[in-house]
């Protein structure tokens, strides 16, 4: 088991190195001069220019620059944002909780609806409900979420006026951040502040539409996967045996079938993290959600080189490690996979 883990871990290293080369190379290919952008309009003085260039090590040969970048990256230093003058790490850790909260709620919504629907469709195979669910999950899977987000705004914000359009919480509340997750922080503040539950309610309403938009594709994938996995398991011999033993159907489904069907479902949920990040980029842009998706798009428009470089590395690294963790969990539950 341990050997498998080590093998997986060493398998990941070349990919990580490749990603670091890619993120390093990308910002050097982007048209425009980072030094000029950093110095601004008045930075044309050649002496200042040369000084800045050597300070950033941009006058060194490529391999030295890369080595310097890698050495600092390992130490956790990804440089400074040109726009905000803060370190990339600070910028990232400021925004990451917002994306994390959105992602968790979206995935929670997808799991809590998707799995029961998939199970029910499998049990009522070829029924009207089954067809309706399969059709709607295919529609959900094909959904352009940047449009879906706008449609949700149109229905729930513009027409019904139930939900706000952008941001994480109403600007009327000044919430002291503790965990970075708005739902938790508003609850924690509730005890001390005079607002009561109002901030929590506001945060919840802000979170509702973006998480529905972001959770739609995962919901469709999970419902489909649960259905097919359940159908496969229900056809197995041990289910027939359990039936022959006279066990109640509820117990067979709940205990025997579901447990075995969960393995591929968990894998799929793990692999959905990549598409969650894609979803975050689009969803955060639509709902002005201050997370890493919006951050990375804005940094590309602003040509904020260190942020682009660090951002790519963070996001790709995160996905690589999540995929590795999923593989390992999979191997733990299902020894046949090793």
């Amino acid at each position: 088991m341990l050997r498998y883990f080590f093998k997986k871990f060493f398998h990941v290293i070349p990919t990580l190195v490749g990603i670091s080369i890619l993120s390093f190379a990308v910002i050097r290919f982007i048209p425009g001069d980072p030094v000029l952008i950093m110095l601004g309009e008045r930075g044309a003085n050649p002496e200042v220019y040369a000084e800045m260039k050597s300070k950033l090590m941009l006058d060194r040969p490529m391999h030295e620059q890369y080595w310097y970048f890698l050495k600092n990256a390992v130490k956790g230093d990804f440089g400074q944002s040109i726009v905000s003058k803060r370190t990339v790490i600070e910028e990232f850790s400021d925004r990451f909780p917002a994306t994390l909260e959105l992602g968790i709620v979206a995935l929670f919504f997808a799991v809590i609806i998707g799995i029961p629907m998939g199970i029910f469709a499998a049990l009522k195979r070829n029924s009207f409900f089954d067809y309706a669910l399969m059709t709607s999950s295919l529609i959900g899977y094909s959904m352009p979420i940047f449009w879906w987000g706008l449609v949700l705004i149109l229905i729930f914000s513009v027409k019904l006026g139930w939900t706000p359009v952008s941001g994480r919480i109403s600007i009327n509340y000044d919430i002291e951040m503790w965990s970075g997750l708005m739902l938790i922080d508003t609850l924690k503040n509730e005890i001390t502040s005079e607002y009561g539950f109002a901030p929590f309610w506001s945060a919840f309403k802000h979170l509702l539409l973006p998480s529905i938009a972001m959770g739609t594709i995962p919901l469709a994938v999970i419902a489909r996967m649960t259905r097919s996995s359940m159908l496969e398991v229900l056809g197995e011999d041990y289910i027939r045996t359990a039936k022959a033993k006279g066990l109640p159907w509820r117990r067979i489904v709940g205990l025997h079938a579901l447990r075995n069907a969960m393995v591929p479902i968990i894998t799929v949920i793990g692999l959905l993290f990549g598409s969650i990040i894609t979803g975050a980029i689009l969803t955060e842009t639509i709902f002005s959600w201050p997370g890493i998706g919006k951050w990375i798009v804005a940094s590309i428009t602003a040509r904020d080189y260190p942020v682009i470089q660090g951002g790519i590395l963070f996001i790709a690294g995160m996905i690589i490690f999540i995929n590795m963790a999923v593989d390992m969990i999979y191997a733990l539950i299902n020894p046949r996979m090793r």
């Binding site: 990308v26 982007i30 980029i281």
Partner: peptide, 24 residues
């Protein structure tokens, strides 16, 4: 296959955004 692993480690839209940032 290593190059493909790298391409797949980046979420589709992010990769496209990065490429567009380089080539316009």
């Amino acid at each position: 296959m290593r190059i493909m692993d790298i391409l797949m480690a980046l979420p589709s839209i992010l990769l496209a955004i990065v490429v567009v940032a380089v080539i316009g």
